[in-house]
Amino acid sequence: MIPPKGYCDLRVEKINKDIINAYVALGYNMIAVNTTLDSFSLDSGVSNRKKRKKLENTDNDSTQQDCIPPIKPIENDSNLVILNRLTIKLANPGQFQKLSSSKNFKSYDIMAVEPLNEQVCQEIITSQLVDIIVCNVKNGVISAKGYKVAVDKNIHFELCYGPMVNGYFMRQDTITLAHMLHMKGKSKNIIVSSGANVKTDIRNPHDIINLGLLLGLSNKQSKDSVTENCHLVILKSYGRKLGKSAINVIPINDREQKTVQASKVKL
């Protein structure tokens, strides 16, 4: 587990060598490759008695298909840290319970949920499994009370600037969503991601910080949306993987160790 630092983009839809080189050139330190799963995929498992009987009649070696796809290996020879993120669109609170029983779920670093109704939204704001909530103008926005509960649970909200580049209506929806989140929770715990499919969708971190002002964020909130808040999301995901623990020891390289020793000498 690599400690988070620098500029981050926690939603990249596609990854290849050109995109990796673009992030390195722009000064990013960490990105997360996203896999999106709709609510219908969670219902693809065994759901009735007939299917269960067929499953019992099969060989003992056969296993039920996992509702969550496995992560794909990524070739990366750069210093850019690449994490894996899972985004699930939920329409039923019962679907959320299937996640903990999935073997592939544990292999993902970051967990994001897009609630499709208010009932699901109330379910996920208190869950320890959720790192990011993806809101949508069409499906409604979380309530002010729910926003506060999510912030207390260290859950973050995401705004994607990628769709703003593609068209007027998407740009209008993103700005509307940003201002609604400001009204509900004063833009607390906001991260700004690209949702990039190609390298031309990626923007310089300083441009994103300036864009945050248009989205209703303060200067500090704009900077935190691509740095500190992203670091908190990653650290929370690390904590979920480690489980309950009092302390986590992370080794540092020789260069960092010399810096620490030099600072102690100065003190």
Results as ranks from 00 to 15, higher is better:
I2H: 06
R11N: 14
V12A: 01
K14N: 14
N16Q: 08
K17W: 07
K17Q: 15
A22I: 06
V24R: 00
G27H: 06
M30I: 15
M30A: 08
M30H: 09
I31Y: 01
T35M: 06
S39Q: 14
D43H: 14
S44K: 10
V46A: 02
V46Y: 00
K51M: 12
K53G: 05
L55F: 11
N57F: 05
T63R: 10
D66Q: 03
D66G: 01
I71T: 07
P73C: 08
P73D: 13
E75P: 00
N76K: 09
D77A: 11
D77N: 15
S78M: 09
V81Y: 01
I82T: 05
N84L: 01
I88C: 07
I88F: 02
F96V: 14
Q97W: 11
Q97D: 15
S100T: 11
S101V: 13
S101P: 02
S102L: 07
K103G: 05
S107K: 12
Y108K: 10
M111G: 04
E114V: 11
E118P: 01
Q119I: 15
V120E: 05
V120F: 02
V120Q: 00
S127Y: 04
S127V: 08
L129F: 07
L129M: 14
L129A: 11
I132H: 05
V141N: 01
I142A: 00
S143T: 06
A144K: 09
Y147S: 05
V151K: 02
D152Q: 15
I155D: 03
E158D: 03
L159G: 01
Y168S: 11
F169M: 11
F169C: 06
I175N: 03
I175R: 08
L177D: 06
A178L: 04
H179L: 13
M180F: 09
H182N: 15
H182S: 08
K184S: 15
S187K: 02
I191P: 00
V192N: 03
A196M: 04
V198C: 12
V198L: 10
D201F: 03
R203G: 05
P205F: 06
D207K: 04
I208L: 04
N210C: 07
L211W: 00
L214E: 08
L215G: 02
G216A: 10
N219A: 15
K220P: 04
K220Q: 14
K223F: 06
T227V: 05
T227K: 01
V233R: 00
Y238A: 07
G239R: 09
K244S: 12
S245I: 14
V249H: 04
I250C: 09
I252E: 05
D254Q: 13
R255S: 13
T259E: 15
A262K: 12
K266P: 01
